[in-house]
Structure formats: C-alpha cells, structure tokens
Amino acid sequence: MKRLLDRFYLDPYLLLLIGMVVLATVLPAQGVWAGVVDRAADLGIALLFFLHGAKLSREAIVAGAKAWKLHLTVAATTFVLFPVLGLIVQAIPGIEPSLGTGILFLTLLPSTVQSSIAFTAIAGGNVAAAVCSASFSNLAGIFITPLLTALFITGKSQGFSTDPIVSIAVQLLLPFLAGHLLRPWIADFVTRRKAMLGYVDRGSILLVVYTAFGAAVLDGLWQKVTLQELALIAVLSLALLAVVMGAAVAIGKALGFSREDRIVLLFCGSKKSMATGVPLAGVLFPAAQVGAVILPLMFFHQIQLMVCAVLARRFAATTGEAAEQGTAPA
C-alpha cells in the first residue's frame, strides 16, 4: 500500500482527511454531540498552535535571517501575488460563490513549514533560509491572513467586526506565544516526542475537518456543490500552482538569486498550509460555511504535494548529474 501511495505521490494523511469528509457526510455531529465535538475541536486548535509555538526555533530563524531579500520575495509571492490571482479567479463567471470564497481564502494563507523545508532539502536548496522563510510565513499568517480575509471576504459581506480578531488572539495567538515562551523548558520534550505530537497535530485538524464538514452537510453542502464544480476546483488549483511556480522561477532569475535560493523561493513561495488554514477557517467563518471554504484547500494541498515531489526529485537528479560531471547546475 505504501509503495502504491509513494508511486502516485499520494499523501496518506489526505486519505484520512477524505475519510473524515465521508464520515461527516454519513454521520454528521448533531444535537448535544455537536456541542461536545465543537468544544473538542476548539481545544485541539489551541493545542495545535501551542505546539507550533513550541517547535519554532529562534536559532534556525537567526541562522537564515540574513537572506532578507529572499524572505521578502517569498512573503510577496505568498501574500501579494497569490491573493491577486485569487481575486481574479473569484471574479470568473459561473463559479459557485462559496467555492469562489474558498479559492480566494486559499490564496490568503501562509506557506507550509515541514513540507517546504523537506522539499527544499531534497532538491538541494538553502535549508536554513527555507526554515526561516517558512517559519516567518506561518507566523505572519496568523496576523496577515485574518486581515486579508476581513478586507476581501468577510468585511464585504458582514462589515468589519473585532470578533474574529478577539477569537484569533484567544484561540490561536495566545497558545502560540505560550508554547514559544515555554520552549526553553519543553523543547527537549517536544523533540523527543516529535512523532507522538505529530499525531496530536494531525488529529486536531482531522477533528476540525469533521466538525466543519458535518455542519456544512447539515446545511446542504452536497446539494450545492456538483461534480463539475469539484473538477473545476482541481483545474483551478493546478493552474494557480503553475502560474505561481512559473512566476517564482522568473522572479528568482531576475533578482539574481543563487540556485539554492531559487529553490527556496519555488517551494516556500508556492505552498499553502492546511495546518494553519483549517483552524483559521474555523475561527473566521460561520460553522456551516467552513466545509465549503476548506474544500479548495484540500484539493490544492494534494496537488502541491504531488507536483513538488516530482520537481524536488528532478532537482536532486540534476544536482547529482552535475556533481558527477564536475559542473555546478544553473
């Protein structure tokens, strides 16, 4: 089974996410049980961001912070280029409004951390800079994504409200800061229990996905979304990724970045974080709307992993061939 998944670059975690969607479709949480699951999901999100804060290494950030030009370019790709493309896609006639909102929200999210660093390492890029760029993007996303969401999505339909800001501060930012401040005392524990805490990380997201889709199903999600629209989401996700990756390559060359730094820009600038996006959607949108909002993110998540896996291996092969010939790859 593992060989089959590796062959097609399928993320096993995505299969679990799909399982949660199926479970929520067949057996959505209702009544008293819905309240219990919602509270558990809130606690899971708080724990998730606490662990994110505890894992954020100041030493790694300092080590890579010298490449400020690269980090600003990655941030501009993540929080400027992507949102502009999202607004263009949302304006395309015929897209179901809630899915258009989901695609736009996807483009407002920060980059991933673990997979961006992993693919950069496989491809032979600047790992220290990747750690810095990905960590900064994720940290900035806690502030920037809610602001962009209020500007482009919720602010237009609901008017500006301080409620999401308070929710973000209490449910996400405070646990994150608590985890980071406690890092000197719990860093060893977090490192030793990395595998176990990874299950807590992913389990929290699975729980949020279940509650989000359960509420959306009860609100008639699958009566509103057609198979053609799901196919359209997949096509648009692939198109978004292709445009951003093409732009990242062109910008990296235009700015004179080294090959190692261009790899960082490619992998950190083109990725979007499900680990951050799902909890943020749960805080920023009404419960019945969250399922439709994160649907494009689930598609994009798998597509970005498949494409980046192929590209990282090709970069690695190119590096190996150049090393054998005694030349440096361009």
Rank of each mutant, 00 (worst) to 15 (best):
R3E: 09
L5G: 14
L5S: 13
L16S: 04
L17C: 08
G19H: 01
M20G: 04
V21I: 14
L23Q: 03
A24R: 05
V36N: 02
R39N: 08
A40S: 08
A41E: 02
L43V: 03
A46L: 02
L47S: 00
L48C: 00
L51T: 09
E59S: 15
I61W: 08
G64A: 12
W68A: 14
W68Y: 14
K69M: 11
H71I: 09
T73I: 08
T77E: 09
F79P: 13
V80S: 02
L85T: 02
S98W: 07
S98Q: 12
L104H: 07
F105Y: 15
F105R: 03
L106G: 03
L106N: 13
Q114I: 08
S115V: 12
I117K: 05
I117A: 04
I122A: 03
A123M: 10
A129D: 08
N138A: 07
L139P: 04
F143D: 00
I144E: 09
A150G: 09
I153G: 00
K156Q: 11
S157H: 12
Q158M: 10
G159K: 11
T162R: 03
D163W: 07
V166E: 13
L173Q: 03
L177W: 11
L182H: 00
W185C: 07
I186N: 02
I186Y: 02
D188M: 12
R192Q: 12
K194F: 04
Y199S: 07
V200R: 04
V200F: 06
V200C: 09
V208Q: 06
V209K: 12
T211I: 10
A212S: 15
W222E: 06
W222N: 08
Q228G: 15
L232C: 08
A234N: 13
A234Q: 12
L238C: 09
A239P: 00
L241W: 14
A247R: 12
A254I: 14
R262F: 08
V264M: 01
V264E: 04
F267I: 02
K271H: 09
T276W: 01
G277I: 14
V278S: 01
G282C: 13
L284N: 04
P286Q: 05
A288E: 02
A288V: 11
L297E: 01
C308L: 15
T318D: 10
E321F: 01
G326K: 07
